[in-house]
């Protein structure tokens, strides 16, 4: 079963095969959680979206048509749309809601600085308009092609490139200070 394709697993899921359900979750949950976390900036919200994604898989498994679409692309589409819906309902991004990085006990200065930089990059990402953020998340973080991203966002390939170009221009401006810091640290720490 471990070598079974996603399509085969979905067919077994429709029959109530617990092992197939578990394997499908093992294969895709982490990536769906990562996508939702990048989009929403909150682990708790990301878990809710990931759960909803799999509830839809369970519900629609019997109607899945193998070969019509790639299952992982369909999953990304469902997760992206759920995230965009949530962002639409909460139009003003609450920057303060993004949690501070946790630090247990004494932390070396370098690690504190890295965490601070990570938080500022996260803030810059959360400051992007929702669809630009989705395009960056799908291509840069999820590693999908421009064609897959276009399919998921239901736009042309050219539109994806435009979203990405605008997103990265905004990020470059928002992270100008961080970029200088990062370059300085790269020299200092010899990274």
């Amino acid at each position: 079963m471990i070598d079974a394709s996603d399509d085969e697993l979905v067919a077994r899921v429709a029959l109530g095969d617990e092992a197939a359900c578990r394997l499908l979750v093992d294969r895709h949950l982490t990536r769906m959680l990562a996508l939702a976390r990048r989009m929403l900036g909150s682990h708790a919200d990301a878990e809710e979206v990931a759960q909803e994604v799999f509830l839809r898989v369970w519900t629609h498994a019997s109607r899945w048509e193998p070969g019509r679409a790639q299952f992982s692309t369909w999953l990304h589409r469902v997760a992206t749309n759920l995230c965009l819906d949530r962002l639409r309902r909460h139009t003003t991004d609450d920057i303060d809601s993004i949690p501070e990085p946790q630090s247990d006990g004494p932390t070396p200065l370098e690690e504190l600085e890295r965490q601070d930089l990570a938080r500022r990059v996260d803030l810059a990402l959360q400051g992007l308009p929702a669809r630009q953020r989705a395009a960056v998340t799908l291509t840069h973080y999820q590693g999908l092609s421009n064609i897959e991203a276009a399919e998921i966002l239901n736009v042309s390939v050219e539109a994806v490139e435009s979203l990405l170009g605008r997103a990265r221009r905004q990020l470059r401006v928002a992270l100008a200070t961080e970029r200088d810091e990062w370059l300085r640290k790269t020299v200092e720490y010899g990274q």
Partner: peptide
């Protein structure tokens, strides 16, 4: 350089056991 900065964004935590339980409990 921008790619390197973006790579520093915090990664998602691992799925919680509760999430896994909820998903599996709802399976067909």
């Amino acid at each position: 350089e921008l790619d390197s900065l973006l790579a520093m964004a915090p990664a998602a935590d691992a799925p919680s056991p509760e999430l896994l339980s909820r998903i599996m409990a709802a399976r067909p």
